[in-house]
Simulated assay, not measured.
Amino acid sequence: MKILVLYNVARDLGVGVASDIICEQEIEIIVPLVEELLLARGYEVETIETTQNLWNNMVSRIGTFDLALNMAESFGGGNTDEPLVPAMLEALRIPFTGASSLNMQLTLDKEKSKLVCQGYGIPVTPYQRFDSPDDPLQSNISFPAIAKPIRQEGSIGIYADCVVKNEAEMRAKVAHIISNYFQPAIVESFIVGREISVGVIGNGANLIVFPPLEFQFPDTHDDLLKIRSFEYKWGGQTEKMVKADLPSSVVEKLVSFTKTAFRATECRDYARMDFRITPDGEIYLLEVNYNPGIGPNSHGLNNTLTKMASFTGRGFEDLIEEIILIAASREKLI
């Protein structure tokens, strides 16, 4: 099977603050590792950057490969417009791994994905969308709260000071988000408790849910700092990813919520759901993550789904190949 690996290197920021560019650079480490492992496993491989010439590049290659491994997290050398990549592949009838353009558009929007998941019976954090920092505060929001860009992923725009303790702090942070990320903010009541993530691979009735993973933050005793902020994910602060020690009843609920969210938001091939769990065992869905990072946990990298897969004996190489085979089966290539 010949695999075309698609990736994007962000050299300019379309939205955000200067520090956000840090998270866009790891792909330059991951793609050569993916190419190497696929060649070692007998695949033919070509890699293409998703530049502004992507459409013409893809048209010229139709029929020269079997499946695109879509690792692009943006388009055209910036850090935006990720859904354009699967949209082009769909328009050209090119089989590819991971999220469709519909799934991306839905799950990129934290409000829309919460509405869908809530409609399927999954508890979500109390939230409010802010199109302006002057929007009236709804009664469902309590403090402390956390303010986030509504359409960013990978902890982008989520810094430690996004946890706000009062309305004045909240409105200042909302104003910052709107002016720097050019999108609404979403404000959620802060859930004190454990940060849990659950990964899943497969499609339809054939979903494999990995054991839940917990993010731990050994550098702080402050509950309000125990979030997977930009500082932890990209800024060098110490976090630990461990197999979550949870009661079986809680794990069963997490597995059920994860499968339901995967299907309700029309995820494909692989995804990851992030939750908070209170000390009383109440579970709240934070968000649905399509195409979560599938790089190794070596070379200075830190990839959650790969870590979860390791709980089941799967290595980085195994996970990549399994995702390819899952997508190939969905596309009826095998």
Score class of each variant (00 low, 15 high):
K114P: 00
L115S: 12
L115G: 04
V116Y: 05
V116K: 04
P123D: 00
P126Y: 02
P126A: 11
Y127H: 08
R129Y: 04
R129Q: 10
R129M: 13
F130Q: 06
F130D: 03
D131V: 01
P133S: 14
D135A: 15
D135E: 08
P136N: 15
Q138H: 12
S139T: 09
N140C: 11
N140L: 05
S142H: 06
A145F: 02
A145N: 03
P149D: 06
G154T: 09
I156S: 09
I156H: 07
G157H: 04
Y159I: 02
Y159K: 13
D161C: 09
C162W: 03
V163N: 06
V164T: 02
N166P: 00
R171C: 13
R171W: 12
K173M: 12
K173R: 15
V174N: 05
S179A: 13
F182R: 11
Q183M: 11
A185H: 05
V187N: 03
E188H: 11
S189M: 05
V192M: 12
V192Y: 12
R194L: 01
E195C: 09
S197Q: 11
G202S: 07
G204P: 05
A205R: 13
P211A: 07
P212R: 12
F217G: 01
F217A: 03
F217E: 02
D219V: 07
T220Y: 04
H221N: 15
D222L: 05
D222T: 14
D222C: 10
D223Q: 14
L225A: 08
F230C: 02
K233H: 03
G235P: 02
G235M: 07
Q237T: 00
Q237D: 04
Q237F: 12
T238I: 07
E239K: 13
K240N: 15
K240F: 14
V242E: 08
D245T: 10
